[in-house]
Amino acid sequence: MSDKNTKGAPSQRGRIWFEALSANGKPVAGLPDSVRAADIDLAGKPARVIAVVPDTNNRFPRARNGEVGLLEGWNVARAVRDVVKADENSTEKRALIAVVDVRSQAYGRREEAFGIHQALAAAGAAYANARMKGHPVIALIVGVAMSGGFLAHGYQANRLIAINDPKVLVHAMYQAAAARITLRTVEELEKLAATVPPMAYDIGNYAKLGLLWKLLEVEQADAPTTPDLALVRDTLVAALADILKSPRDLSCRLGSETRAASVKVRKLLREQWA
């Protein structure tokens, strides 16, 4: 059962995969407990893994369950920009791997008051900037990739990789709130989601949109086995190689039939532009 209706207990998936990938890595200091980063070796190349994880003691009470809030946005930005700065004069640009399990952006009064939109922009811009400077950026979706949380942490990546699992989902808004905003019932939304791929929550339907680079079959999404980890590592290495021979924009996401209108709009704009 997916979590599209209720959010339940904080998911530990992001932490689990982060720790599995960074077992032999060097943790990055100076971050709050809700943002984890480590420098690892990926098939002989240096990379930094970053995750936003639940922190029950978070100073901001609305950001204790793995949401991307004010501290998370700004600190992810720091973890990314530090890499870009350190590699400024190097021809080899370290890879950045965002482990994505973000149940949402943080919804709260403090967040709005102190400009959470600016914090999310900081993180998103940091990843986009890294990508434009030549750093390979990969998002590994192991849990929920929801809305503003995903925009800040992962959606600027050169390549999106997800594991195929019922708890993995991508969307813009949970069903209860979406029903309220669109003046539909949850049942009506369910029915539509079954036939309209972009309205669905599950990763299978998301894969139809052509935004994912790879969808991986693992044995245990909540406790990766040795072969699971090997598969993910191999896929990350393959993604790095693929990125190095490709343009550093997001154009690789435009191939699918489902996004035909996105392609058509760009084609017509180009014809009419000059």
Binding site: I181, M199, L209, R259
Partner: peptide
């Protein structure tokens, strides 16, 4: 929200 994931993308 009627185009949810394509809007987000």
């Amino acid at each position: 929200l009627q185009e949810a994931n394509l809007g987000l993308a």
